[in-house]
Design a binder for these strands. Structure first.
Length: 275
DNA sequence: AGCTACTCCTGGTAGC
DNA sequence: TGCTACCAGGAGTAGC
């Protein structure tokens, strides 16, 4: 599921439910969700600690614990997080559960088991190399222009690369490229300054609009921590619209495969590179 | 440096 | 209805 807008939504909603809460006990139903940290050590260190803060970086959710530890969560394809009342059933896919001192239980839920909830001393120990936050102050037009110029790589795989820009995934990359009218196979270093600016603007606009709608939900997977679906899926202009008319020109949206990822585009609005 | 293939998992769905 | 094949929001690794 989750890309930057969904992860941001999760972080915003669980933050007020966790900050200040003490963990009373820990249940680990699927040890591999801990990413190599032993369940024993995880239980010992997390039990009794208190949430100090919750924030997002790229697609990671960082939960700071008192006095000095972090839980770094990544939802990958099917992960969710929520806080439920203790008398409510956790469901079949709660992989890690933390009982809180106010009667709530934090669940890390993950059908496909790709997600992780890693205990570390500092978040930076868990993060791989991450590019700038696309909605943050470092992501300027000037930086983006020169960053594109320095990469001899196709746009779609480049935008999906978290070490280039942090937070875009398969859906929003397709939406962003369509909004900027750029073909996913265009070479980054050949993008003119005006087109680079259009792409920069599209990235910020699409992600912000999706956050405003609490992300996108189109199957049973992604829900906000309160169980509500997001609504940005109603704004998709190409993703999942194969064969349907482009909202800009009316031609059928095409699906191609780029780097093993399904890729949706309008070949009239997004002109293919020569060759 | 950048590309492809493969891997980790389960569930939903299209097609027969 | 039942079976099978394929597909999916991510990303690390290996090999070329």
């Amino acid at each position: 599921m989750p890309e930057l807008p969904e992860v941001e939504t999760v972080a915003r909603l669980i933050r007020p439910q966790l900050v200040g809460r003490r963990v009373e006990s820990v249940r680990v139903a699927w040890a591999r969700s801990l990413g190599g940290v032993s369940p024993t050590r995880f239980r010992r260190q997390v039990s009794g600690s208190t949430f100090r803060d919750v924030w997002r970086r790229g697609k990671y959710i960082v939960m700071e614990l008192e006095p000095q530890a972090v839980l770094v969560g990544h939802l990958r394809m099917s992960g969710r997080m929520r806080v439920r009342p203790r008398n409510e059933h956790p469901g079949d896919y709660a992989r890690v559960s933390l009982e809180l001192d106010d009667g709530g239980v934090f669940d890390f839920i993950d059908v496909r088991k790709f997600g992780r909830l890693v205990l570390a001393e500092r978040a930076e120990q868990v993060f791989p190399e991450l590019g700038p936050e696309p909605l943050g102050p470092e992501f300027t037009r000037e930086w983006f222009r020169s960053a594109l110029r320095s990469r001899k790589r196709r746009l779609k795989p480049l935008l999906l690369d978290q070490s280039f820009v942090a937070g875009l995934g398969n859906i929003y990359t397709d939406e962003v490229l369509h909004a900027a009218r750029l073909h996913p196979l265009r070479q980054a270093h050949k993008i003119a300054a005006r087109a680079a600016d259009a792409l920069h603007e599209a990235i910020r606009d699409v992600l912000q609009a999706a956050i405003d709608r609490q992300g996108s939900s189109f199957d049973s997977f992604y829900r906000t921590p309160e169980g509500q679906p997001g609504s940005y899926q109603h704004e998709f202009r190409v993703y999942g619209r194969t064969g349907k008319p482009c909202y800009r020109c009316g031609r059928a949206v095409k699906r191609i495969v780029v780097g093993q990822r399904g890729t949706h585009l309008c070949t009239a609005c997004q002109r293919a590179p020569r060759g």
